[in-house]
């Protein structure tokens, strides 16, 4: 930890925690092979470290059955960040190990249907936030943290609550979550994450130029962002989907006990089992009590 430098931290020193999707089900069919993608990423990490010698980069891999730290520039050695080949070597070895380990765990778990599993972004985000809290504790002056998610596989609906919890915790600590989608589908989770935390959401059109996108958009520190014209997140859909049919709805009924959302009136809540007393057809449309 660079506590000795604590007096040198200026506005433009960043801590970037990169969350990388290593989902084999996605990368097997991706337009950009994982090896190419990873070399783009390594060059990006190196350029971040070269931008400022106090910059700090951590890479966390999100697999199908586990998450792990892959790279941490604070224990990369004192040789400085410029040692591109060494960083690449070490990180890619670690990632290979991680992917193998992850594959073993996935194989041992019968629930993962082939091709259908989402990466564990909720876990990777939680770990990233814990790491950032540690940097916050390290002193009154610390690098400005942010999280960058590189996601390819589709969202896992079962992670919804956990991902939202992470987003709110990031929002409270004012940590922006940037997202770059390397897959074909937009991610509703990450759109909300970037919108709520004030990060940048982007889905590059031409993945062969991924490094250019990363360097041009996601390398800028938080201080400089005020002066830049970065892609804006437009039209995030905050409508809810009902628990009974998974339809997106404009208007619905919410259980007052567990906040489950339904599209029709039910007699009993299917989530918490509370029985609803029948009241007037629509309580809200009674004349406003204030008048």
């Amino acid at each position: 930890m660079t506590t000795t430098h604590s007096k040198l931290y200026a506005d433009d020193v960043s801590l970037v925690v990169v969350v990388v999707d290593t989902n084999p089900f996605f990368w097997a069919g991706a337009a950009l092979p994982f090896a190419d993608f990873f070399s783009h990423l390594i060059h990006f990490v190196n350029s971040l470290l070269l931008l400022n010698h106090l910059n700090h980069v951590v890479v966390i891999a999100a697999g199908v059955s586990s998450c792990a730290y892959v790279f941490d520039s604070s224990n990369a050695g004192a040789s400085g960040a410029a040692d591109v080949a060494a960083t690449l070597d070490k990180a890619s070895r670690k990632v290979e190990e991680f992917i193998k380990q992850d594959a073993r765990e996935t194989a041992g778990n019968g629930t993962v249907a082939a091709g259908g599993a989402a990466s564990l972004f909720s876990g990777a985000l939680s770990i990233a936030l814990c790491y950032i809290q540690r940097i916050f504790r390290s002193g009154t002056r610390h690098p400005q943290p942010r999280i960058l998610c590189l996601q390819g596989s589709p969202d896992g609906p079962e992670q919804y609550v956990a991902v939202m919890n992470s987003i709110f915790s990031a929002q409270r600590s004012m940590i922006p979550i940037d997202s770059c989608i390397v897959g074909t589908q937009d991610s509703a989770f990450l759109q909300q994450a970037s919108y709520i935390t004030g990060g940048v959401y982007m889905k590059p059109q031409e993945l062969s130029g991924l490094f250019q996108y990363l360097a041009a958009v996601f390398a800028s520190d938080l201080h400089s962002r005020a002066f830049l014209r970065l892609p804006k997140t437009l039209g995030v859909d905050f409508r809810a989907s009902c628990f009974c049919h998974k339809k997106t709805i404009d208007m619905g009924y919410v259980c007052s006990v567990c906040l489950s959302i339904f599209c029709k009136y039910h007699k009993k809540c299917s989530t918490c089992g509370s029985e609803f007393i029948r009241v007037m057809p629509d309580l809200n449309s009674m004349p406003d009590q204030r008048q």
């Binding site: 009136y265 809540c269 809200n284």
Partner: peptide, 9 residues
Amino acid sequence: AANLIKMGF
């Protein structure tokens, strides 16, 4: 009392 509340999104 537990109840369903009509809400708009």
